[in-house]
């Protein structure tokens, strides 16, 4: 193997790693393609890409069109992380401007993947506050907001624990919806607060598949219709899982 081919294969592997990280962190198809093409042209190669929801394929062609390299990579299950999306985007500009070489790209990707998340309790409390804020938007009073906070807090906690135990992601959403609406349902059942309806309907809003659905519309508008449909169906299954959780509670409390 001479130097050019090994170079192309190295670039191909790192591009696949970057692309897989982007797709599983919640970037749209267009953004993934744009970033990878920017990186490749900064490193002096031309690439052809095939991007799907769960796999990436890249062909790297060097400048004199003599050597090329193709590989397929399966992306990891989706876990939204905008720090990676943001960091990779910054990095791609540095590479494009010719400041960084391939070793620095690999090191930066490793660093970005290791960046700490916000601590669990902080996330739980702020998302709980977001739930309370939602409840206020839909007309809930102070007590309803407290109910929505508790429901959201516990629901998200259950979802995190279920994800750690490696349940199917849709089942995790179902558990979370069940927990959250069970708590809000108790408040409604015992007529707690002045607008328990609002608390009940907003307690599961933290589960709405906002990223899949918005990315789905963006993808379809960009002409990546296949990926858009896949994301749409994924979002609908999540919505269905939420509905199942809420229905279960409604049936429980209707007796």
């Amino acid at each position: 193997m001479n130097e050019e081919t090994s170079n192309a294969s190295e670039v191909g592997s790192i591009l696949l790693d970057v692309g897989a990280a982007l797709m599983s962190s919640g970037a749209s198809t267009h953004r993934t393609r744009l970033t990878l093409e920017r990186l490749a042209s900064g490193l002096g190669f031309k690439i052809e890409l095939l991007i799907t929801q769960r796999a990436l394929m890249v062909t790297v062609i060097d400048k004199d069109q003599e050597h090329f390299f193709s590989r397929l990579k399966r992306t990891s299950p989706h876990k939204i992380n905008f720090k990676i999306v943001s960091g990779v985007s910054r990095m791609s500009w540095r590479v494009f401007d010719g400041e960084w070489n391939i070793e620095q790209v690999a090191a930066e990707l490793r660093r970005l993947k290791k960046l700490p998340h916000y601590s669990q309790w902080l996330v739980l409390s702020t998302v709980g506050l977001a739930g309370a804020a939602f409840c206020h938007i839909f007309g809930g009073g102070l007590i309803d907001m407290a109910v929505a906070f508790t429901a959201t807090f516990s629901g998200l906690f259950v979802r995190q624990q279920a994800t750690l135990k490696k349940f199917n992601p849709y089942v995790c959403v179902f558990f979370a919806a069940l927990t959250a609406s069970l708590i809000a349902g108790f408040a409604e059942f015992f007529n707690f607060g002045n607008h328990p309806d609002a608390a009940f309907s907003t307690s599961v809003l933290f589960l709405v598949p906002g990223v899949p659905l918005i990315n789905s519309v963006t993808d379809m508008m960009d002409g990546n219709i296949q990926n858009g449909i896949v994301r749409m169906v994924n979002g609908l299954i999540i919505a269905f899982a939420i509905a199942m959780g809420v229905f279960t509670v409604r049936i429980l409390f209707s007796f």
Partner: peptide, 21 residues
């Protein structure tokens, strides 16, 4: 105004859930 503030709090909360910088 209070609803706007609530929307802002909710947006920031979701930002944290999505691990934004």
């Amino acid at each position: 105004i209070t609803k706007c503030l609530a929307a802002g709090v909710a947006a920031a909360g979701f930002g944290m859930l999505f691990n934004v910088p």
